[in-house]
């Protein structure tokens, strides 16, 4: 059996089936929806950080762009939700294109500039001067298209596609090329990889993923404020979940979300500061002792992790 097929059967299929079937027997659909959102975002971070090495500290910018692209096209253009989802994705990709010059920055500078970019987008969207267009700080209400079942199903489909993307990158020449760029861009270029095109493509793919799930999020919750969808928590959680499990694999981010977001829901909602303390300590321990995440424990024993 080819490796990509085996990985699909091992990761994409079970996670998708679980997400699709759990609502039948479990009543807290919002919780499941949040899991789906973070599974997608963590894989989106995996695409750009895990494979390419750019740390997207402002990843939430794409999520917010997707949510607002979706909402504004429903409000102003009266579009059907599925079409509006396309507009959300387009908004995220346009933002990604606008930010491609940032990819010229290395390491820490990219992370900081990306964070600043996300905050700048938030400041523009929530500016009271633009209330006519974006509803400013007063938030969005989409009661007309509210449809929890359909939007949940769409989110699961987006998550499944994102997982497949991670499996594809894990097993393809393109994914290998991205990892070569991460290790050493100059050598990768010498080996015949078009560095600029490859990293731009990875960047736009991860923007697309966040934009789509952002649109689905707006559709599912249907009432939100700009600081909901531009909350730095989305970037940070997604990065920490992906790192905790182990990036550049399809399994790592899934494990990270299941474990850490599970803990978050157990203790983080009632006492967020204790969860913040735990994940702060986890991050520090991770960087110092296990920089390649949980899956590196398996990899060290020679196990092929999907």
């Amino acid at each position: 059996m080819p490796r990509a097929l085996r990985h699909t059967l091992l990761v994409v299929l079970p996670v998708t089936l679980a997400a699709a079937l759990l609502p039948l027997g479990y009543s807290n659909q919002l919780l499941l929806f949040n899991f789906v959102v973070f599974l997608t975002l963590a894989q989106g971070v995996n695409v750009i950080y895990g494979f390419t090495g750019y740390l997207p500290f402002g990843y939430v910018g794409f999520f917010g762009a997707g949510a607002y692209g979706f909402s504004l096209s429903v409000i102003h253009l009266h579009m059907a939700p599925l079409g509006a989802l396309g507009v959300g994705a387009l908004a995220a990709i346009l933002l990604g294109l606008l930010l491609t010059p940032l990819l010229r920055l290395s390491g820490a500078y990219f992370a900081i500039a990306n964070l600043a970019a996300a905050l700048a987008v938030y400041q523009v969207v929530s500016n009271p001067n633009l209330t006519e267009i974006t509803k400013g700080p007063y938030g969005i209400s989409l009661s007309g298209v509210y449809h929890p079942q359909l939007s949940y199903a769409v989110a699961v489909a987006i998550m499944s596609a994102t997982l497949s993307l991670a499996v594809y990158l894990r097993n393809s020449r393109f994914g290998l090329a991205l990892q070569a760029i991460r290790e050493d861009a100059v050598s990768a270029a010498m080996a015949g990889i078009n560095v600029v095109r490859a990293r731009t493509l990875a960047w736009l793919l991860s923007a697309l993923v966040a934009g789509l799930i952002g649109g689905a999020f707006a559709w599912y919750v249907s009432v939100f404020y700009p600081d909901t969808v531009f909350s730095a928590d989305f970037s940070i959680f997604a990065i920490v979940f992906a790192l905790f499990g182990g990036v550049a694999t399809a399994t790592g981010p899934v494990l990270g979300v299941l474990i850490l977001y599970g803990i978050y829901n157990a203790i983080g909602i009632s006492t967020p500061q204790y969860f913040q303390l735990i994940y702060g300590l986890l991050i520090m321990g991770l960087v110092l002792f296990l920089p390649n995440g949980l899956v590196s424990l398996l990899k060290r024993r020679g196990i092929d992790v999907p």
Partner: peptide, 15 residues
């Protein structure tokens, strides 16, 4: 340089 961002981000969360 890159790892320091993540490490000190963790510290900032703890603080």
């Amino acid at each position: 340089e890159m790892l320091s961002i993540i490490l000190f981000f963790g510290l900032s969360q703890v603080i």
